[in-house]
């Protein structure tokens, strides 16, 4: 257990809205080893982004971490002061956002973004930081001539490369990438995922890849963490998950996605709608849409069960 890079236990993050309490992340346990990549998958509103932000303690108000532990390399992040937390953000845990256009300062040159980030955490001279920034940009495929350009002069894919360079600037132990390719076209998505894979091998950091698109997980993630309605319903190594998802939601999800490799695919669909997190269904939250649901599923919340080696599933079937 000491070797875990990140260990989340019983995490609850609620949003206190005018309409009621939204239980966005509700009792989630997650653990990851150093250098591992976890694909955190779920639909919109499943709590995946909230979970990602909670790790950095960046949940926007009216959201709050209610309870639970986030232990990062032996430190319980939920107990740190804001000052101590700031030393961790960017330096040890960094983030890649969906659209870096909204996370980059439009009035600041690309190079300065990176230089500023480096100088905020490390004692380097401006020249040394610039040298490092140029090297970083080259690593993500941006020529050094573009150092003085502004964010609006970059295309979506290039901006995401800058976002990745920024996230890696301080050689973090963990990168949280929140839908990093969702606003990109398929060919650029392919390029960016490839770049992320390459850099991960080079830097050896751990990564949490948050996505609604389960198709991008194979080939990049070691593990899959599947979220539904604020809860982690399955946690497994990627290969086993795609070969045989255990949770009925995972199974149904994979059967509902068109696969370009299939010639005569028959899609199955999931009936009903994702639940309202102010009033989630009683018992298992997937039970109203689950073909295997029994009386018990509708009454009691299923426990999280270990199946085989390190495979977790939240379902009464196991």
């Amino acid at each position: 257990m000491i070797s875990d890079l990140l260990r989340i236990e019983g995490l609850r993050v609620y949003y206190y809205t005018r309409d009621g309490v939204v239980m966005a992340v509700d009792n989630v346990d997650l653990f990851m080893k150093k250098g591992e990549t976890i694909g955190l998958v779920g639909e919109s509103g499943s709590g995946k982004s909230t979970l990602g932000r909670a790790i950095l303690r960046l949940v926007p108000p009216p959201g709050r971490i209610i309870s639970g532990k986030i232990v990062f390399d032996g430190l319980n992040l939920t107990e740190l002061s804001e000052e101590e937390m700031r030393k961790i953000r960017g330096k040890r845990i960094s983030m890649v956002f969906q659209d870096p256009m909204t996370s980059l300062d439009p009035l600041m040159k690309i190079g300065d973004h990176i230089v500023e980030t480096i100088m905020a955490h490390e004692t380097l001279t401006r020249e040394e930081a610039e040298e490092k920034a140029i090297k970083l940009l080259e690593q993500v495929g941006i020529r050094s001539e573009r150092f003085m350009d502004y964010p609006h002069q970059f295309s979506g894919g290039m901006r995401q490369r800058v976002g990745i360079a920024l996230a890696l600037a301080l050689n973090p132990d963990l990168v949280i990438a929140d839908e990093p390719t969702s606003s990109l076209d398929v060919i650029v998505q392919f390029q960016i995922l490839d770049l992320m894979k390459e850099l991960k091998n080079l830097y050896g950091m751990g990564m949490i890849l948050i996505t609604h698109d389960i198709s991008i997980i194979p080939g990049i993630a070691d593990k899959v963490a599947l979220m539904y309605a604020g809860q982690l319903v399955e946690f497994a190594d990627a290969k086993s998950f795609f070969n045989e998802p255990l949770h009925p939601y995972g199974k149904a999800l994979l059967e509902s996605i068109p696969n370009i490799q299939h010639s005569d695919q028959k899609l199955k669909y999931i009936p009903g709608n994702p639940p309202d997190l102010i009033n989630p269904p009683k018992g298992c939250r997937f039970s109203p849409r689950c073909p295997y649901a029994t009386e018990k599923c509708r009454e009691e919340e299923p426990p999280t069960i270990m199946v085989g080696h390190h495979r977790l599933v939240k379902c009464f079937q196991y």
Binding site: V186, I187, Q189, F190, Q191, D194, D213, I214, S215, I216, I217, P218, G219, A238, K239, F242, N243, L254, I257, N259, I260, Q261
Partner: peptide, 18 residues
């Protein structure tokens, strides 16, 4: 374009055209 489409199956090996 076809080679860039992600496939939800880790067992599929495909031609990669980047």
């Amino acid at each position: 374009l076809l080679s860039a489409v992600p496939v939800p199956d880790p067992n599929v090996k495909r031609k990669r055209i980047m």
